[in-house]
């Protein structure tokens, strides 16, 4: 009986630990951002486009506008690129592919999701970026390259979730539509899409959440320059890249400003994911 109580206690503690980690993340990020929050406030920080290290290496003038903009713009490009392709794949996998193709295509898509993000970064840096540059001009490491590669990275994730949502359409509905003489397109448009709408929107928002927080691929590809992007093909920076590039050698206040950026990123992605999961992808179990 002692083992019984011990086992229950241990598993209860582990469940608490999960909550504790989450709260600890918020508290620690807040703790280290305090001096930046004190110096710059909130609205001033997010509307300030400067990131200047002070002469002594410790002070400076730091604002989050450019990285916040870079994060949103690159994620937006990713969504514009990913949504049509991911939806196409999901439709292909649920309604079009013959049985013998469903499994291999499904596996290929899931393997694409398993490739570490640093690999996408390498590929984009040495192959895809220069290709985009040769098509559109500008710089090879740019908002466009980062956004499109980010899009390629979230396609499998978005496609898999949308496919699962579309698969929940009752086959009775689909079959009765076919028996009425509907074409595949009409079945998809009038039966599958309306039925799976919530799940599909949820999958898009969840992918957006991923794109917002992605670090390594973007670190290779966005250029990492602290300035406004004047076109799609110019270099800029995003929040995770700012942290990845400058964290190591940062002085006190800059370090605090970076924790502040991380806190903002964490809150943005927390809300994005929460909305997707609890409004659109509510589990029914």
């Amino acid at each position: 009986m002692l083992f019984n109580r011990f086992f229950r206690g241990l598993s209860h503690t582990s469940a608490w630990l999960v909550l504790t980690i989450l709260f600890a993340i918020i508290i620690v990020l807040f703790h280290y951002s305090k001096s930046a929050i004190g110096d710059f406030g909130f609205f001033h920080f997010i509307t300030n486009s400067k990131w200047i290290v002070g002469n002594d290496g410790n002070g400076g003038n730091f604002g989050g506008l450019i990285p916040i903009l870079g994060t949103f713009l690159s994620s937006l490009i990713a969504m514009v690129f990913a949504i049509p392709i991911a939806m196409g794949i999901a439709i292909f996998l649920t309604e079009i592919a013959p049985e013998f193709l469903k499994a291999p295509v499904g596996i290929a898509v899931e393997l694409l999701a398993a490739i570490p993000s640093i690999i996408y970064g390498m590929w984009g840096l040495f192959y895809f970026g220069p290709l985009l540059q040769s098509w559109f001009g500008g710089q090879s490491n740019s908002l466009l390259t980062a956004g499109v590669v980010l899009g390629i990275m979230v396609i499998p994730f978005m496609a898999a979730l949308s496919r699962d949502a579309m698969n929940t359409t009752p086959s009775v509905l689909v079959e009765s539509a076919y028996s009425m003489g509907a074409t595949r397109y009409e079945v998809i448009k009038d039966i599958v899409f309306p039925f799976a709408k919530k799940g599909i929107i949820g999958s898009v928002i969840l992918s957006l959440g991923r794109a917002l927080g992605e670090t390594m691929a973007v670190a290779f590809l966005i250029g990492g320059v602290f300035r406004f992007p004047d076109s799609l093909t110019s270099a800029t920076i995003s929040i995770p890249v700012l942290i990845a590039n400058n964290f190591g050698e940062a002085g006190n206040l800059q370090l605090s400003a970076m924790f502040y950026m991380a806190l903002i990123l964490f809150i943005i992605s927390f809300f994005t994911i929460t909305i997707a999961k609890f409004y659109f992808l509510r589990k029914t179990d």
């Binding site: 969840l206 927080g213 992605e214 670090t215 991380a262 964490f266 992605s269």
Partner: peptide
């Protein structure tokens, strides 16, 4: 929700 948290945030 934590499962989708940005990994760089966990890092710092």
């Amino acid at each position: 929700v934590m499962m989708s948290a940005p990994s760089i945030v966990i890092g710092i």
